[in-house]
Amino acid sequence: MLEIKNLHAELEEDSDVKILRGVDLKVGAGEVHAIMGPNGSGKSTLSYVLSGRDGYEVTEGSATLEGHDLLDMEPEERAAAGLFLAFQYPVEIPGVGNMTFMRTALNAQRKARGQEELSAGDFLKIVRAKAKDLQIDADMLKRPVNTGFSGGEKKRNEILQMALLEPKMCVLDETDSGLDVDAMKLVSDGVNALRDAGRGFLVITHYQRLLNHIKPDVVHIMSEGRIIRTGGPELALEVEEQGYGHILEAV
């Protein structure tokens, strides 16, 4: 599904700041991988580089989705190819109804893939059903995108978009940050409901607690722009018990 090889990236405006220093990672269809690591290790940058955010220069390496070169595509082409990023800080767009936003996005992707655009009526049926599954009330669909949403509402809105756009590869950037226990459970349930044999997940998190709800198949530890250790779910527990310092020392 997702294959990252020897990926190097630096800040566009300051080439001395090298953030990714050779990331290797392979996520297969149906697998859930977690990336953990201390602050500043390059976890979020990896998600931005994969999704095509401005401000980073890839100097070496490759990233492909089902064999297609992601780094060669515009952000919207990556989305249409099946990549989805759930933002750590979802962006507010005042005046734009959440529903309009999602319909524009879905139809843009459908158009890019040569599929027919959905009518307002058909879209409404789909989005209502998905919202119901995620226990999102209709009011949130009508409000402007993320504007005045609570932290939990913003993250649930990300998961709703994910459910609606049905991506092949989902990258979740610190989705647990700013969530209380109940919200975390709701969000995790939403993610778990989307797990399926054809879909890959990359869950970026600082804390192990999210991984109690979203059980990963593989856990990676990232430090200084590289993946320094890979293991099973037990690796996350090791972090929880002994902290990152212990693991970093051991490498």
Partner: peptide, 19 residues
Amino acid sequence: YCRSRGMDEEEAVALVVNG
């Protein structure tokens, strides 16, 4: 944010400005 959801740049600008 708009582009990462599949809209091209002009669509994104139009959406934000319409908002």
